[in-house]
């Protein structure tokens, strides 16, 4: 079973965001593997353990992304591929075009990714890749039973959950579920450095920048206005509760 996991490196959830001109300042921000991609890697490793397969982790980004790829290798993935997009201004179309091209050159039975990246929260790259590659997608998967030629998965849908069967190859995107990603083991960390990490550019996968040019353009970035601290309602609980109820009705007019 050949398993390919699409991975993104993102800002740490605790990262403080500041602007550098009209861009997000990336200096000094600690970077982590997108948490939903960790679920995908874990799912991939479990499928690998069941079928004696091979897990390849693929990402788009600069050299700093190697840290997140190395983490995936330390968790137990076998190979990593990092494609440098050669540009800062990219969108989901760009990323999906590159990933699909890179993955298209690999053997795969199943494609996995996180259902969203916590930085831009756009929830569309994996879907786009599936569309380009012509494989079915199931998003927000919380459980997956994978067999040789099909997967039966449980996924979140609006207002509940569904059990869906798809033939392989398919793209499954991981939502937080019962699957807890493993921590890399110390041995895994030592082995990771011996595993192949392929660093390539657009030319290596037969793309030119124009083919992957973004469709969406970011016009401006800003920081949200700080929510003004509100008022503390003083007094004993009974008194405070009464006053709060009054404020909600008369001042905030929300009930």
């Amino acid at each position: 079973m050949k398993i390919v996991v699409l991975m993104k490196q993102v800002f740490d959830t605790e990262a403080k965001i500041s602007l550098d001109g009209n861009k997000i300042n990336k200096q000094g921000v600690s970077l982590v593997m997108n948490p939903y991609d960790e679920y995908a890697v874990e799912l991939g490793l479990r499928i690998k353990e069941k079928f004696k397969g091979e897990v390849t982790v693929v990402s788009v980004g600069g050299p700093e992304v190697q840290d997140a790829l190395r983490q995936a290798l330390a968790m137990g993935a076998d190979k990593a591929v990092l494609v440098d997009p050669g540009a800062d201004e990219i969108d989901e179309y760009t990323t999906a075009t590159i990933l699909a091209k890179a993955i298209g050159g690999l053997e795969y039975n199943i494609l996995l990714g996180g259902f969203k990246a916590i930085d831009d929260g756009s929830c569309q790259v994996c879907g786009r890749v599936a569309e380009i590659l012509g494989v079915p997608v199931v998003n927000m998967v919380t459980q997956a039973e994978v067999e040789e030629d099909k997967a039966v998965v449980t996924c979140d849908i609006d207002g509940g959950s569904a059990v869906i069967e798809v033939k392989l190859p398919a793209m499954l995107t991981a939502q937080k579920g019962e699957i807890e990603p493993r921590y890399p083991s110390m041995k895994g960390i030592m082995q990771a450095k011996k595993k192949p990490m392929q660093k390539i550019g657009l030319g290596d996968i037969g793309l030119d920048a124009a083919q992957a040019a973004p469709k969406v353009k970011a016009l401006s970035y800003s920081l949200p206005a700080a929510r003004a601290a509100g008022k503390l309602v003083p007094g004993e609980p009974a008194e405070a509760a009464k006053e709060l109820a009054r404020l909600l009705r008369e001042e905030a007019k929300v009930i």
Binding site: D67, R70, A74, M186, I189, M190, A192
Partner: peptide, 14 residues
């Protein structure tokens, strides 16, 4: 080293 950095991150996370 890269391994030491990854170890720190892993143990911290854990």
């Amino acid at each position: 080293t890269e391994e030491q950095e990854l170890l720190r991150k892993t143990v911290r996370d854990f």
